[in-house]
């Protein structure tokens, strides 16, 4: 029997990847990295690692006569060039194993952070997502089938049922197409929009696309404080990161907010605010602004991120 060190190293690395990913799932840290929608998929990935590890273990030991010829099934075909871990170690290979082990080391030793205002500053351009309103206007009317704004003045319309009619699990975020359309139609008629977490992005899009129809509507949301250059002392953004896949594609979605005591809140402070939607002119474009009436400082929520809703197209 002969121990093949390099194959053992490969097996160890595979095992560590398995442990690392499963550990993220067990501790819940995985939610700091990816949209929970992809949790199952990531577990499949970890299981594949485990499977590959088990297969790899067969190569670690070679027995008897075979030991002379390592189990290299296509010795003769060198046109096919990749390394099977049978060639002796050299500096280049040490470096590549170090590179592969690198994420395991940093992943297990360093705590994961939540993205904050400094990242938002780098990503920039959060207040400018308004252009959808124009191109959407036509489809919106037939889709929503709401009475024209003239008949039901915003803010005084009948509240359509509960303020928060659908509350699917934030971690599932699934609703059907009909529910979704209904929901979007309802938003325009609510007197008090509580953004919550599940539908944060849906509400956000609606308010951004129809600021004029929603003018005067009361809105409550929680998010962290973020400022862009050129803000006045009363201005800040209350926003959250929207994660589509993983935190690498995070985008800050938030509202420009006006509050007398805004200076008291530093960047990254988590706030629960209530206010009314108004229109303002920001760098040449009309965007909604929230005139704050109530503010409450809160701690960072367990789940700081929000996710897009998954609309089930097949009903």
């Amino acid at each position: 029997m002969k121990l093949n060190g390099q194959q053992l190293l490969r097996a160890t690395i595979l095992l560590f990847f398995t442990i690392f990913i499963f550990r993220l799932h067990v501790t819940g840290d995985i939610l700091k990295l990816i949209n929970p929608k992809y949790e199952t998929f990531s577990q499949i990935g970890a299981s594949l690692f485990l499977l590959l590890f088990l297969v790899q273990m067969h190569r670690v030991f070679t027995f008897g006569a075979k030991a002379e010829h390592p189990p290299h099934d296509h010795e003769e075909c060198h046109g096919h060039h990749h390394d099977h871990g049978d060639q002796p170690m050299n500096l280049k290979k040490v470096v590549s194993y170090l590179v592969i082990a690198f994420p395991i080391v940093t992943g297990m030793l360093l705590p994961l952070s939540s993205l904050d205002a400094s990242i938002a500053k780098n990503k920039g351009s959060t207040l400018s997502i308004t252009s959808q309103s124009q191109q959407e206007e036509s489809s919106r009317d037939e889709l929503a089938d709401t009475p024209p704004p003239g008949e039901v003045p915003p803010g005084t319309g009948q509240p359509a049922g509960d303020d928060n009619p659908i509350d699917p699990n934030i971690y599932k975020n699934k609703i059907s197409k009909t529910e979704y359309d209904q929901l979007r139609a309802d938003i325009l008629q609510q007197t008090h929009i509580e953004m919550g977490e599940t539908l944060f992005s849906t509400y956000y899009q609606e308010i951004m696309s129809n600021p004029d129809q929603l003018q005067g509507t009361k809105v409550s949301l929680s998010g962290f404080v973020y400022r862009e250059e050129g803000f006045s002392a009363q201005q800040l953004v209350i926003g959250r990161f929207l994660i589509t896949h993983c935190v690498a594609d995070a985008g800050l979605i938030g509202f420009l907010t006006e509050y007398d005591q805004a200076v008291n809140f530093e960047d990254n402070t988590w706030l629960n605010v209530t206010g009314t939607i108004q229109l303002t002119n920001y760098q040449g474009s009309q965007i909604p602004i929230i005139e704050v009436t109530e503010v409450e400082t809160i701690g960072e929520p367990d789940q700081p991120y929000v996710y897009p809703v998954n609309i089930e197209v097949v009903e």
């Binding site: 995985i30 990295l33 992809y38 990531s42 990935g45 594949l48 590959l52 994420p103 994961l112 690498a248």
Partner: peptide
């Protein structure tokens, strides 16, 4: 370590964790 390094590490790992299942498949 500076905060930005933790962010770097987090984003780096998130790209990897997201990509690994696809790569393995």
């Amino acid at each position: 370590l500076p905060d930005s390094f933790y962010h770097l590490n987090t984003i780096f790992l998130s790209i990897l964790i997201e990509a690994l299942p696809f790569v393995l498949i």
